[in-house]
Design a protein around this nucleic acid. Structure first.
Length: 419
RNA sequence: GGAGGGGUGGCCGAGCGGUCAAAGGCAGCAGACUGUAAAUCUGCCGACGAACGUCUACGCAGGUUCGAAUCCUGCCCCCUCCA
């Protein structure tokens, strides 16, 4: 099928579309008038990770093509989704946590989207605003009639749990109803007619689409994005440190840059399409590079992806640090984005144990790990393998006054400076 | 409420009185080869300690024993079937 609208054409050619309720209908609508669409986000963590990046990119393109994005933070649904908070004080605390999470999560959108009060400006919403005040009996009477258990049982998420004989609580069962209600609310308040989400959200999205139709007799649309895996089949987003967070306080821009730089060859083209805004013909050129040349494409990917989240300046710095680290022998890392540790005068006199320094720089999580690293030959000081696990850093270790580079393997480095 | 099964390291999963810091797999880390890639091969993979070693860990709390992940008692949680 050939798509006519800018938005769907971009989504399609860049690989964002997994399935949709009525792609043609949505396409037609998009060519007629600007629309409002939303994506819901959970507030369970303090930061998004690359898994959510697909969704964020979709919102970006939505706004770029002249439509209005709504970012819905699931303040209320997150609260309900976690049934462990039983006693009163904990519940209060977790509400507090959710608030903090939402605050932190929201910062990510400011670079990708333009917020404001204009017709095309993005809005940040929290479903707390309407779900918290729902009255159980009237909610049941008004909306409960639109959901049949028969239908709900056929949804993938439910069916799988039942087939595997995994328990599913009534609470979880209700989650999808509340999410459907979100859609209805957004449709009524903001004229929002599209919900977008990951493949796992398909069932929930369908429910929303149907609820809106039953209540208002209007057609709204659902669209899902594919689950992004690496060419080797692994779920995206794991590094040595854990998840690939988007917030800089959890993962430095340099490490973020490195994550993209280390993309597998086979993924470069796909990732350039998904996670950068480079023109398609440029991407086609880049992905044709072969052998070692494809590294240039990976650098572009890293630059653009980092700039999108952390800004041009941070991307530039990350690139320079990487260049110094991997492509030259020069040792001036002062301006780098590597973890840095300054020793005290006292430590320099007494000698700082190398094992401690590995831990303090976050290169290893225990002294034992640092010890094993040295035994295995993966530990280096200024690119010279460390032989003795008992060595110490003293004032004389700084030969020319520049920082010392401590490395765990070839890719993880930290700097040690003296006062 | 009754009967039965089960809770082991990041995950899966063996062990069922000493040889268990706990097989095997996955994930992870490092080394070799390369291109800061993939694949492959090798090593490592609880903490502390320079080291003999010490401590903490097999749902929780006690107990039996020279000795317990393994046996007993109580509690908590999960699953299956029955009411």
């Amino acid at each position: 099928m050939s798509l006519k609208s800018d938005f769907l054409t971009i989504l399609d050619t860049r690989g964002f579309i997994h399935q949709a309720t009525d792609l043609e209908g949505l396409d037609t609508l998009l060519t007629q008038e600007p629309i409002t669409a939303y994506i819901g986000f959970d507030a369970t963590a303090r930061s998004f990770h690359v898994g959510s990046l697909v969704q964020i990119m979709v919102l970006y393109w939505l706004q770029q093509t002249g439509n209005r994005p709504l970012v819905l933070m699931g303040g209320a649904t997150t609260k309900i989704g976690d049934p462990t908070g039983k006693d009163e004080s904990r519940k209060l605390l977790s509400e507090e946590e959710i608030r903090e999470n939402i605050e932190k999560l929201s910062t990510i959108f400011s670079r990708a989207l333009t917020f404001g009060k204009g017709p095309k400006d993005a809005l940040l919403l929290n479903n707390d605003a309407w779900i918290d005040s729902l009255n159980y009996s009237s909610f049941l009477r008004d909306y409960g009639t639109h959901f049949t258990i028969n239908r709900m049982l056929t949804f993938e998420s439910v069916r799988l749990r039942l087939e595997r004989e995994h328990p599913m609580t009534f609470l979880e069962f209700n989650y999808m109803i509340l999410q459907a209600y979100d859609f209805l609310e957004l449709y009524k308040k903001y004229g929002c007619c599209v919900q977008i989400g990951g493949v796992d959200q398909w069932g929930n999205i369908i429910n929303g689409v149907e609820l809106v139709r039953r209540v208002t007799h209007k057609t709204v649309y659902g669209l899902t994005t594919p689950l992004i895996t690496t060419a080797s089949g692994a779920k995206m987003g794991k590094t040595a440190q854990g998840a690939v967070w988007l917030n800089a306080d959890l993962l430095s821009p340099f490490e973020y840059w490195q994550f993209w730089r280390n993309t597998e060859d086979k993924d470069v083209g796909r990732f350039l399409r998904l996670f950068t805004t480079l023109p398609l013909d440029e991407i086609e050129r880049l992905e044709k590079l072969e052998g070692a040349e494809i590294n240039e494409a990976k650098k572009v990917l890293a630059d653009k992806a980092t700039a999108f989240i952390h800004g041009e300046k941070a991307a530039q710095e990350a690139r320079e640090t990487a260049h110094k680290l991997f492509e030259t022998t020069q040792a001036n890392y002062q301006e780098s984005s590597l973890p840095t540790l300054m020793l005290t005068q006292e430590e320099l006199e007494k000698g700082a144990p190398i094992l401690d320094l590995f831990c303090r720089l976050g290169l290893t999580s225990s002294k034992g790990e640092a010890r094993r690293l040295i035994e295995g030959g993966g530990a280096r000081l200024n690119d010279t393998p460390i032989q003795n696990e008992l060595s110490v850093i003293t004032a004389t270790s700084f030969q020319d006054g520049s920082p010392l580079k401590l490395s765990a393997g070839k890719k993880r480095h930290g700097l040690i400076t003296k006062p």
